[in-house]
Design a protein around this nucleic acid. Sequence first.
DNA 1: CATTTATGTCAGCCATGTTGACTTTTTTCG
DNA 2: CGAAAAAAGTCAACATGGCTGACATAAATG
Lengths: 160, 160
Amino acid sequence: MLELIELFFFAYRNFVSDPDEILQGIGFGRAHHRVLHFVNRHPGMRVTDLLEILRITKQSLGRVLRELVDQGFIDSRAGKSDRRQRLLYLTPKGEALARQFVAIQSRRIARALSECGPDSRELCRRFLVAMIDTEDRGSVEKLIARADQIAADPSRARKA
Amino acid sequence: MLELIELFFFAYRNFVSDPDEILQGIGFGRAHHRVLHFVNRHPGMRVTDLLEILRITKQSLGRVLRELVDQGFIDSRAGKSDRRQRLLYLTPKGEALARQFVAIQSRRIARALSECGPDSRELCRRFLVAMIDTEDRGSVEKLIARADQIAADPSRARKA
DNA sequence: CATTTATGTCAGCCATGTTGACTTTTTTCG
DNA sequence: CGAAAAAAGTCAACATGGCTGACATAAATG
């Protein structure tokens, strides 16, 4: 059991070190990456959505989000049905960056999966799901499913 | 692929949230946990060993290690064959705390494995190993093997 | 219209990681 | 033997990113 504890630690450390290289080049940090990632996956999401997904305070988010907006990676627009809201979209610049992150993260996972064999993907997925708190699994899986739907049919994203 | 990226993020977040509860109660942080964990696994390890495993600077380590020593969780002794070195051991107080961490982390993993079925442990192990940089795998596996040996035969730990 | 909600801002603090520089003691090796 | 190297430690400053509390504005709600 201790072995898996340690392997999880080392694996995750390497997993996040890949995007770090990109982040360092642009003067951003991991918090920026996370924000960019989820806005990429959920165009038109609200600030509140991000707070819920990332489980950070609005002050923490505000700092990072402001930099991403100021530097042209994210576009923040008032909602149509509720003008208090700020709906978040990636700019083309932001999308290009997000693609870079996805690519570099996917590479590591793809390589790991290919080493483990053709049927390992599903078991790994199940393991990671099982590592998530029971009460959160539904919302995480729903979040992922919804993002996949949007990727398949972009008209499903929230409009502004 | 994006699914696994996100699942890994959420899984790890939950994984480290368990020890956080303990840490918060004693006014320590994750860096303390990591130090305690590896000293537990490698009694008699040197400061340099910790720096290498954790890949942090001696200044970072020094701060946390000092607190653990000052508060009686870790015992630091000069080496016999090289008096420059500081060999690190857990005190009984430190061991008790380390046991708590191991227990709470093991619980989550054990539950996840039991959900995935009897043969999933080996595949999960392989996946996590495969997620580690190729050039680090040897040393990580050796580190784990060595710790397991010490756990099986404590006389193999470094003496001070 | 009073209250609530969504977002944003100000401020201060904390944990932990980094860099650079310097110090002391001990070990190494020519 | 002594210069150089090594192990550890310390001081200082800074960065990132998370937190708390308080406050403000605009918009929505009942």
